[in-house]
């Protein structure tokens, strides 16, 4: 596998909140990497740190932050904005955060291309926009160009966002909870679309979600994030065959699976909420919510190998879970 995006030892702080604490992940060319965890775990901040889009006041540090071998850490704002929307693009949960309500779909799509490809003519940009709207499954693409974002349904807006992100043929697409606000039927259509695009265009995707059901269906590799740390990472099949971190197992037990529900028994759940971690915090951040917590958990937590390319951050031994199937 060849690495397209490499993140190692990433830290992001907002004043007294340590939002990302030493996260590492690698997105290979042409593969889908899922970053999964509950709200507030630092997934979006990780993505924004990669894109150079962190809010003012955020402090970012990393041992490595590279795109296609190029170090992003000391790239100028201008160089970073040349990369964004060109070789790497991002879409968000709420398409209206990046669509401007007062411009037509067409003018926003063509603007992206003309910003990054000054040589492109207007006609070329329009052709590309029409082609991509068709590619993302939008009927009558020519007519859509003249419409405004509010004239489209949530599912269509997300398709437009995807088409817009693809205008300059990016190598990496970061999709931050792109289907969380959508109906399950539309979610399935959008995820199928992304999987198809990635196959056909060789796109690498970093997909952020809180739902392990989605991860199982689309990811090649998974990083599970908790309170700013990657607490488990593995190829998808390995992760679901033998999840090791108690947090991963807890998340998995929360996904409702039709036909497996026992009406007289509670669903699996994780008690409590994601904590805010101050700088200098020591030990496992999950220990207050963990059924397996013990004294060692407040000391240094080892990163353990559980198999080929499968690691987890926990005081438990790699084979601890063998005797305990994940609660359904």
């Amino acid at each position: 596998m060849s690495a397209l995006l490499e993140v190692a030892g990433l830290h992001v702080r907002f004043g007294e909140v340590a939002a990302v604490r030493g996260a590492s992940l690698v997105v290979a060319r042409g593969e889908t990497h899922c970053l999964v965890g509950e709200s507030g775990c630092g997934k979006s901040v990780t993505a924004l740190a990669v894109m150079g889009l962190l809010a003012r006041g955020a402090r970012r540090a990393a041992e490595r932050l590279a795109f296609a071998g190029q170090d992003l850490r000391d790239l100028s704002d201008r160089a970073m904005s040349r990369l964004r929307g060109d070789r790497m693009a991002m879409i968000f949960q709420e398409p209206m955060t990046s669509l401007n309500p007062s411009y037509t779909i067409g003018s926003q799509m063509t603007e992206v291309l003309r910003r990054h490809r000054p040589g492109a003519t207007r006609a070329q940009a329009v052709d590309r926009a029409v082609e991509l709207l068709g590619r993302v499954g939008i009927t009558a693409p020519g007519m859509r160009l003249g419409q405004y974002p509010h004239q489209l349904s949530g599912g269509l807006r997300q398709r437009v966002m995807i088409a817009m992100a693809l205008m300059c043929e990016p190598e990496l697409l970061i999709a931050d909870e792109p289907t969380t606000a959508l109906d399950v039927t539309v979610q399935a259509q959008i995820l199928r679309l992304l999987a198809g695009l990635q196959r056909d265009l060789g796109l690498a995707i970093l997909l952020i979600t809180h739902d392990l059901g989605i991860v199982a269906r689309v990811a090649h590799r998974v990083s599970v994030m908790y309170a700013g740390e990657v607490v488990e990472s593995a190829p998808t099949a390995a992760l679901f065959a033998a999840p090791r971190h108690p947090y991963t197992r807890g998340l998995l037990s929360c996904v409702p699976v039709p036909g497996k529900v026992r009406r007289d028994q509670p669903l699996g759940s994780i008690p409590g909420v994601v904590p805010r971690i101050p700088p200098g915090f020591a030990g496992c951040a999950f220990r207050d919510r963990c059924a397996h917590a013990r004294a060692e958990c407040s000391g240094d937590v080892p990163r353990r190998a559980a198999g080929p390319e499968h690691e987890f951050l926990c005081t438990l031994a790699p084979d601890w879970a063998r005797a305990e199937p994940v609660a359904a």
Partner: peptide
């Protein structure tokens, strides 16, 4: 069918 259960290998239907 649109419910995505955590079963790897099935893809998105």
């Amino acid at each position: 069918a649109s419910v995505l259960t955590p079963e790897p290998g099935l893809g998105v239907p």
